[in-house]
Write a protein that binds this DNA or RNA. Structure first.
Length: 773
DNA sequence: GAGTTTGAAACT
DNA sequence: CAGTTTCAAACTC
């Protein structure tokens, strides 16, 4: 693997640091192109990390710490220059690349990417760390070089940490996804290390075929670069990947996991180390690890890394396909790398993972889209359950990676959003499977009344899964498939082909669907995390900021039931919606439209919005007047679309009631609590918005905030397209990020660290606040 | 738990 | 692209 030309190429590249955002971005894109990566990913890629960042921020110190440490350690140990970071990423992705460089690089890269705003890579901004994802990159590297160090140094800590981690169920919950990943990752690594090649074998087995070295490598690179850009998201993904990644790149995973882990752990305890040292756990957890790994893999496997970097990847398991694809490659590489990582990385990786493991293995990380996320969560679990599944995931990731942009974009979302969500989840449920629990809360809160639905299930829903009969779980009808997750035990589907065994079919089907609709697997709801911040600025922004990309077409549900994707996603309806009598408590379309219109007008875009608004206003005015008012205040309109922007933000999710997802977005919970009733919901909407804002801010505030975005498209329109997102995401660091609600898993990781916690807490707070209200 | 409703996804 | 059908989730009883 390492020998492969790619490696050399990568190595040569590694030095490139420059890339970071721009470079990486371009590089990635180019890479993707070469790879066939879809632009979409780019779209998704959005900076999502913000969330991460945010979470990280909270952790910030923590993150910094970790990063610093990592870097430091690494640096000290290996000293990789930051420059390497880019390279590192790649490496991480590829895993083969130089260990040291990677580690170093990753860090720097991450930082650079993540923090871009602040300072160059060098500075280990907390935010970056948050990005965790970035770390991911590093992680892998670390895994290699760092790990050793980490292990050594951290191991001791790790144990303690681990304990802590374990203790901290929350973390798990929050992180559950992440945690899982981490856990999984770590375990994986551990396994690798401990087991030796098992992990590799597993990986290889599962994904083995899938990965194409080159592609993966390339992807990775691109991914890496992207990661740089999206360091956060990447980190996220990576971390997850790392977890899951074990498979793909252990190193990466490890690395990422480490980073991730760090974040998470650190966030909580800083136990990062503890995680690192998982070795102990390894043995102990070996099984768990495997499980976790599987899960992780499922969630985001290898691809993640890359994608992560890219940004969206994580979002879905979709990545799977890609992931799987690249995954193998990665594996191969990773295998080689693994050895390294294992050797070195083990510790680190393991460490990271261990922590993660601790939590419930199953917990999935969130996925990109809220829905997806939900699905993911559940799926993840599924995946976890099924080793194969996990494998799939990875593969998907690979694909995503390849597609890169798309996934990445999604991933980003996840990160930001998910992270927060996850975190929240954790908070909520920490205890258990996080998501579920969280979901519950969130879901309940979010969806006021009924919601029992999934939430109930909920959250557990993660467990829930699909019950497809005719679609064979190969259509978007299938939540699992839509979420990019393999169907697992929880599923009650018939004739299911969405299983690792049928990976090829799944992937091909997925591709077909994506071909038909590049956004098919993209998060359905975008949130402007940062926008949120902006929002803060503008009360208008509100939750509305997050909007359903495609928009709903509700007629009878008045957008007050889960039938409405917007509502389900916990976001207000937007101009994109074609709903009738919209009463979406998160923000009516009218309002949104009006707001948009305003913006539009200002900007000039406008016409559409105006028209819509008019129409909407007329139509809806009746119903929503109240809501609208509220909404209006709250929702500014952020264009849903701006995926790019939206992606990042997730953190706020809290609002999102989106039930399902494991994530249960904190917000939702908060909201839900309040909102349960429509009336309240209205208030909530306002409140929630405010809350969101607050939340967002908190999250954002911290470090991450930097990014905050702002916005959306100037127009306020939704920018839709992911494509744009691509370009954006990379660049955007700072910009607003859209966040997918759902996906939190990653975020959780982030959250883990601090951000997650913070987020959670914030969410909780919000929830609390809301609740009372 | 069965049956109905709903709206997205898929198909034509 | 619009209309119709299919599908599975959401919801109700």
């Amino acid at each position: 693997m390492q020998d492969s030309p790619l490696f050399s190429f990568i190595d040569s590249l590694s030095p490139i640091e420059p890339l970071k955002s721009a470079y990486s971005g371009n590089g990635l894109q180019a890479y993707h192109q070469s790879l066939n990566v879809t632009s979409v990913s780019s779209i998704f890629t959005s900076p999502h990390h913000n969330a991460h960042k945010e979470s990280k921020l909270s952790k910030g110190s923590f993150a910094d710490y970790t990063e610093n440490e990592l870097c430091m350690e690494e640096g000290t140990d290996k000293n990789k220059s930051p420059t390497s970071s880019t390279a590192v990423r790649l490496f991480a992705c590829t895993s083969t690349i130089t260990r040291e460089s990677h580690t170093m690089t990753t860090c720097s890269v991450n930082e650079g990417i993540v923090d871009p705003p602040k300072g160059p890579n060098d500075l280990p901004q907390p935010g970056r760390f948050d990005s965790g994802s970035p770390d991911h990159n590093t992680a892998p590297c670390h895994g290699v070089s760092v790990r050793s160090d980490l292990k050594q140094d951290k191991c001791p800590k790790l144990e303690a940490v681990q304990t802590t981690n374990n203790t901290v169920e929350k973390r798990k919950c929050l992180f559950s996804t992440d945690m899982q990943l981490q856990d999984g990752c770590q375990p994986a690594k551990e396994n690798n290390e401990v087991m030796g090649c098992e992990w590799d074998d597993l990986v290889s087995v599962t994904s083995g075929e899938l990965l194409a070295f080159d592609s993966s490598m390339d992807q990775h690179h691109t991914g890496v670069q992207l990661a740089v850009n999206n360091a956060e998201s990447c980190g996220y993904l990576l971390s997850k990947l790392a977890g899951g990644a074990d498979i793909s790149d252990r190193t990466h995973p490890t690395t990422s996991s480490q980073a991730y882990y760090h974040e998470m752990v650190v966030g909580e305890d800083k136990t990062e180390n503890g995680q690192l040292f998982p070795e102990d756990k390894k043995t102990i957890l070996s099984e768990e690890i495997q499980d976790n790994i599987n899960e992780e893999n499922a969630c985001i496997p290898l691809g993640c890394k890359v994608e992560t970097q890219q940004r969206g990847v994580r979002r879905r398991c979709l990545v799977f396909e890609a992931a799987g694809y690249s995954h193998r490659t990665v594996q191969k590489e990773s295998a080689g790398d693994l050895s390294f990582s294992t050797c070195k990385g083990k510790s680190s990786a393991q460490n990271h993972r261990n922590p993660g493991k601790t939590p419930s293995p199953h917990v999935f990380r969130g996925i990109g889209l809220h829905l997806n996320a939900l699905a993911l969560t559940s799926k993840d679990k599924m995946a976890c359950q099924d080793p194969l599944a996990t494998a799939l995931v990875p593969s998907l990731k690979t694909e995503q990676v390849v597609h890169g942009n798309l996934l990445s974009a999604g991933g980003n979302f996840f990160h930001s959003g998910s992270g927060s969500l996850d975190l929240q989840m954790d908070n909520d449920d920490c205890s258990v499977g996080g998501f579920l629990g969280n979901d519950h809360n969130s879901s309940q809160s979010s969806s006021p009344p009924k919601k029992r639905r999934k939430s109930d299930n909920g959250d557990d829903d993660s467990c829930k899964r699909c019950s497809c009969k005719k679609s064979k779980c190969l259509k978007l009808y299938c939540e699992c498939f839509a979420a990019g997750v393999y169907c697992s035990e929880p599923c009650s589907c018939q004739g299911c082909l969405n299983k690792p065994i049928h990976e090829e079919i799944v992937l091909s089907t997925r591709k077909q669907i994506e071909f038909r609709n590049p956004l098919a697997f993209a998060p359905k709801v975008i949130r402007m995390s940062e926008a949120g911040q902006e929002t803060q600025e503008d009360p208008k922004n509100t939750p509305a900021s997050a909007r359903h990309k495609r928009g709903c077409n509700c007629k009878k549900s008045s957008c007050l039931k889960k039938y409405c994707e917007c509502y389900q996603g916990g976001v207000g309806c937007s101009n994109n919606c074609r709903c009738e009598t919209c009463k979406n408590t998160f923000g009516t379309r009218d309002v949104a439209v009006s707001a948009e219109n305003e913006e539009m007008k200002q900007e000039g875009e406008q016409t559409e919005s105006c028209e819509k608004e008019k129409e909407n206003d007329q139509q809806k005015a009746n119903v929503h007047s109240e809501d609208h008012k509220l909404v209006e205040l709250v929702v500014p309109i952020t264009p849903p679309l701006d995926v790019s922007s939206s992606l990042l933000k997730q953190p706020n999710f809290s609002n999102a009631k989106p039930p399902r997802p494991c994530k249960a977005r904190s917000g939702s919970s908060s909201r839900s609590s309040k909102a349960s009733v429509t009336v309240q919901s209205r208030k909530i909407s306002k409140v929630g918005d405010s809350v969101f804002i607050e939340e967002m801010p908190d999250i954002l505030r911290e470090p991450s905030s930097p990014g905050i975005v702002k916005t959306c498209s100037p127009n306020g329109k939704r920018v839709s397209p992911p494509h744009n997102a691509l370009s954006i995401s990379p660049n955007r660091k700072g910009g607003r990020k859209l966040i997918l609600k759902s996906i939190p898993s990653f975020p959780s990781l982030v959250g883990d660290t601090n951000g997650g916690s913070a987020i959670c807490s914030s969410d909780s707070t919000t929830a609390l606040a809301l609740g009372p209200s």
